[in-house]
Design a protein around this nucleic acid. Structure first.
Lengths: 258, 258
DNA sequence: CCGGCATATTGATCAGAATCAATAAAAATC
DNA sequence: GATTTTTATTGATTCTGATCAATATGCCGG
């Protein structure tokens, strides 16, 4: 009864599907399949490690609520956060492809995850290649994101970096409906931000103060309010990411499979 | 005549296939398919841009010979190289998924590429999901690599960064048979290296000198010779990358497809 | 409401790396 | 082979951002 499937699928809207819809046409049937892949829903509390560097992780977990950070701690005790994960992002995409994760992932807030096993997902990929391509797309997207971060840390000044980070995070949150046009909740400490941007906490704090003094934003109650987003974008050399579209042939699944 | 196919396929060994073989079983038939995807072979001369930031690029190009750099130039004139590409790497993997490339790619040396169209590749993915998964794997691998670079630039000291970069490049070159156990050709200028590591040229030079003085390596004739690779690894906190294995179900294509 | 702990803010000092500048060496071009 | 251009090396100076340190603020559980 395809009507039933559709109804269920349509009602099932998660940040992950919201994000997917921006670049690939998932049919109600696809969505139902995706949904069936979810083995369980996990609740994680703040500060708990989801993935531990050096240990196996063989799940794909879709973030439904909350934020997390992928990071590595060096022997000298310094920590570098490689990526801040938000609703709609996948935990375990890089890790699961190796026998041992190369990075840890920690919950920055309480979280809700939808968990599926990597094996199950890959099995589906054989029946629905579109899923495998979606996986590629996610990985590519993540890679781009990382590249942008390299540019940030390598060649932008601390204040540009900070501005860029905030704008970029805002943009990503917007896509999954977790931000207002000029404001968003930022439930993370300055220590986390400094470890993300490769700065010391005091210096990050100063840069934040400067942005405030320049009247570009207001930070209060773990919430960022852009007061001059234009100026901020100029400062950060920010260009809102061209959202990837799926290459033409990827839309042709029907003819090829049917 | 499957025998013929196999012979051709076996004879067709490129850095790309060498690399793939490390993580996925491509049958002779797969290899033949892959080979048929190649539209033409391109020869590029040093310093030419392969991909230009802001313009479309809809190819997947497998590097057969030579090296390239993915980079971005900021408005202040600074350049950050995001990735050094070597034989076996793919040009256009991130770029092709967007309507416009977000980074430029420049040839650091004369190069030879095998070029296929993204559309053709994706079409094949529908018939052979293994190809799509291989694509994911490449993207994931690249992402990991980028993450590692973020840690480098964000939290490692310049000398550690340099050491890490050299070891990592050496490791990658080894995989595709382009390096000796303790030495490799490094046909790139110090300017390129400094833009990769987020350092100034003079400072990079000083760090290089220091590694030489510490008797960890010798640089001559655009060739690096490790004289104390152990010490170098300790300095860089280097752990030779666990090569990813393909998740179990990915090996089961035969039963699923046949 | 009270410690106690995490987080934020501010200041002072100092080291490391950028910048500026000059020269040397090597490679490419004619 | 001479000349130009690129690349490498070294030095002197400046300045950014880390580090150390102190204080403030907020937050939680009891």
């Amino acid at each position: 009864m395809p009507g039933t499937v559709r109804k269920i699928a349509e009602r099932w809207e998660t940040p992950f599907t919201t994000r997917l819809k921006h670049f690939v046409d998932f049919t109600p049937d696809d969505l139902a399949t995706l949904r069936r892949l979810i083995e369980y829903e996990a609740t994680i509390e703040k500060r708990r490690d989801l993935v531990v560097d050096g240990y196996p992780y063989t799940k794909l977990s879709f973030i439904k609520e909350g934020m997390a950070a992928r990071y590595k701690v060096l022997r000298n005790g310094k920590r570098q956060i490689v990526d801040v994960l938000i609703p709609g992002d996948v935990v375990g995409l890089p890790g699961s492809f190796h026998d041992r994760a190369a990075f840890s992932v920690i919950a920055l807030t309480d979280m809700k995850l939808e968990v599926c096993s990597l094996d199950a997902f890959i099995n589906v990929c054989y029946r629905r290649p579109k899923f495998a391509l979606a996986l590629s797309w996610l990985a590519v997207e993540h890679g781009n994101h990382s590249s942008e971060r390299i540019v940030d840390i390598g060649r932008r000044t601390p204040i540009e970096r900070l501005a860029h980070f905030l704008l970029e995070l805002h943009g990503r949150l917007r896509i999954v409906g977790r931000a207002d046009p000029t404001a968003f909740d930022l439930p993370i400490s300055q220590e986390v931000m400094s470890d993300t941007l490769g700065l010391s906490v005091p210096h990050l704090n100063r840069m934040l103060t400067r942005l405030r003094n320049e009247r570009m934003l207001i930070v209060a109650d773990r919430r960022v309010q852009f007061t001059d987003i234009k100026a901020l974008e100029v400062l950060a050399h920010f260009q809102s990411a061209t959202l990837a579209r799926i290459p033409a042939p990827m839309q042709r699944e029907q003819e090829l499979i049917a």
